[in-house]
Design a protein around this nucleic acid. Structure first.
Lengths: 238, 238
DNA sequence: GAGTGGTCTAGACCACCCC
DNA sequence: GGGTGGTCTAGACCACTCG
């Protein structure tokens, strides 16, 4: 683990454990340099991680202080925490997840999808629809398109677990980032049936393009989340 | 303007203007050091800005490359671009915005709101409900609570324009960050009436706690956006 | 004025990619 | 092996806050 990651992790633990609470001042950057035997840039980088995670604020001329922690950190049902990135299986790690594969075909992408995935409509993509179930509650239906060339070897068995696990652990490919757009929409009849919804229950739609670390988009997906079970959280910094 | 900001801005312009397009490699960090007469850390910082904005990806051992630009950048109707932070008036600057103040009272906050704003239920908050209209289209109803002590001098006239403008320009206070949670919900009857919605049209709800640069939360708000006119975009980086 | 974090430098070494 | 970006150092000066 990198130095700045380790230091950030240490501080995060100390805050979680109550060594520092709302409004408390953290040790000075100068002092932390001595404590950890590192340069100030490294300390700053660690602190900036905590700022990004919404745990602390820095005030030039004064110091670094713990933010008011609200209930978000206790919430279990958020789609993403902070601006981190993870798939469904990873987000709910440790709980009981099951998956029902509703569709698994190989097709040509539409113009729109081909454009987003930077490929030709002559190439092929997996066309996948999955219902993800958390502790026996149907949570989300995911519509996924992935170029077969970039993500070879997808089988039903993989779809029933985690595509991302397959990509990272088996194919050894690195996922870097995702562009997401969140909307509120109505559910389709199929979704009402699969997720046991009333006809006019709203749906939280997340459209996503995910990128490998080489910059290539490898996934275009639309997820329809039960509105009563899901929310999307983000921290914006000016 | 800071050096790294200026460099990032220059590169952003060059990308927008097509000097570099999808997949192109940007100049090496080493070369850019010479061009701009700065150290490598400064160049890296500038490049990291572009990564955060989703414009480029960096590959260790290879170089820095322009990402596939999708249509998001052309969209006008996003609530927030990237992970930036801004109010309604700022987001739609240059277009015709009007505001209808539906409620403006001073009350004690509920337990829940007091907790989020880190204040006592004995203190007072502004209790504001506003309908925001863009080019004659009712877009969003905002329910806002703000401690009167932190944001003094709010008047009807200010509500009809921009609270944030008042805070930053008149009160000279610095807004630093916001924690947001996005959900899909049903509209209320009042909202249906004000925004001319059908009873079961979905609503995109954004719950927000906004912070000053001293770390104090100064605003708790819930915004209900017309689902057909609004979306929320974010870039997640692993 | 003393002390904070913010920016920046000029270098070093490393992990990784590709030839 | 040669070149990329990633991390890190040990300093410097600056902008800001507060007593």
């Amino acid at each position: 683990m990198l130095k700045y990651e380790q230091i950030a992790e240490d501080l995060r633990q100390e805050i979680r454990q109550g060594k520092y609470t709302s409004g408390d001042q953290l040790p000075l950057e100068k002092d932390m340099c001595e404590k950890y035997k590192v340069s100030r840039v490294t300390i700053k980088r660690a602190m900036d991680e905590l700022v990004k995670q919404g745990l602390v604020t820095k005030r030039r001329g004064s110091g670094t202080f713990v933010k008011t922690l609200d209930d978000n950190y206790a919430k279990q049902l958020s789609i993403s925490t902070g601006n981190q990135f993870s798939g469904f299986a990873e987000t709910y790690k440790g709980r009981h997840i099951s998956t029902k594969v509703l569709r698994f075909e190989i097709v040509h992408p539409s113009e729109e999808v081909a454009k987003k995935l930077q490929m030709s409509t002559q190439d092929f993509v997996y066309d996948i629809i999955r219902l993800r179930i958390l502790d026996d509650v149907p949570m989300v239906i995911e519509y996924t398109m992935m170029p077969i060339q970039l993500v070879p070897g997808i089988r039903n068995e993989i779809l029933e677990h985690s595509i991302y696990h397959h990509i990272e652990k088996t194919l050894k490919l690195n996922i870097q980032s995702a562009h997401r757009i969140v909307r509120a929409v109505r559910s389709t009849e199929m979704e009402q049936e699969q997720m046991q919804l009333a006809p006019n229950d709203p749906i939280l739609e997340v459209e996503q393009v995910a990128f490998f670390s080489d910059g290539h988009p490898f996934e275009y997906s639309i997820s329809h989340h039960r509105a009563d079970k899901s929310e999307f959280s983000a921290i914006s910094i000016r």
